[in-house]
């Protein structure tokens, strides 16, 4: 199995090639995939242009910016937020986001007392319409195993520490319901425009492993 984790700078001397084996795939695997594609095309079972369109859609058209749009709008628009929490599928469709892996969407709101975290222990269910495809770690065995049993340790690995009193609610996506976390709006951004707020809403904050960027985080990057 190919193994390259040099860019991740792991300090734990632990082998976990299975979730990071991407920079140099074994040549036999690449060949196998190419051969399968040729076979399917030759048999007329797939249209090569359809394959390219699918890839382009998920690589360039849908992604966490959709979700950031949804969350930022909910922060500035109370009636949209109410509609979103009541029926996210409908509210989000009105912004133009609908389709596969977003047919039954639910938005769960973080508050001062409750923090939500989303996982799929059985596979990799994820709200594609608003977040795009899931990151590698979300699909990895350690995350799927541990998010339900030790969520606070998992959060700590993302640098997220919650007050002891905060209740953690972990959503295991076992059905076709899809969950999107609405992070708490950062302090001091009350008068920001929706456009500007979008920049604070990270993918990880909408999965629930991190909080939205604070003003300080944001200015560091700017």
């Amino acid at each position: 199995m190919a193994h390259s984790d040099n860019e991740h700078a792991h300090s734990h001397g632990h082998s976990h090639s299975h979730s990071h084996d991407h920079t140099e795939p074994p040549p036999e695997l690449e060949l196998k995939v190419k051969a399968l594609e040729s076979l399917l095309v030759e048999k007329g079972l797939v249209n090569p242009e359809a394959l390219n369109a699918i890839i382009d859609n998920y690589e360039h058209k849908v992604g966490p910016r959709n979700g950031a749009h949804v969350v930022a709008k909910a922060w500035v628009d109370a009636s949209f937020k109410e509609a979103l929490l009541a029926d996210a599928t409908v509210a989000v469709a009105e912004l133009g986001y609908f389709g596969r892996q977003g047919e039954h969407l639910r938005v769960v709101e973080n508050t001062a007392h409750t923090h939500n975290l989303v996982v799929c222990t059985l596979c990799s269910c994820y709200p594609w319409t608003v977040l795009g495809l899931p990151p590698t770690w979300y699909k990895s065995a350690p995350y799927r195993a541990r998010a339900v049993s030790e969520p606070r340790q998992v959060l700590a690995e993302f640098g997220t520490t919650l007050p002891d009193k905060t209740k953690v609610r972990v959503w295991d996506s076992t059905s076709e319901m899809r969950y999107l976390v609405m992070p708490v709006q950062p302090v001091g951004t009350e008068h920001w425009s929706e456009e500007r707020l979008r920049g604070l809403v990270t993918r990880n904050s909408m999965i629930g492993v991190e909080l939205a960027k604070s003003i300080d985080d944001n200015s560091e990057q700017a």
Partner: peptide
């Protein structure tokens, strides 16, 4: 199963190799 070791969000591509794109599609 060990730690999660996430890639930084800003650096993670949607696919990590061409064969992943093809298998997905």
């Amino acid at each position: 199963l060990g730690p999660i070791s996430p890639e930084p969000e800003s650096e993670e591509p949607v696919f990590h190799a061409e064969w992943e794109r093809r298998v997905f599609a």
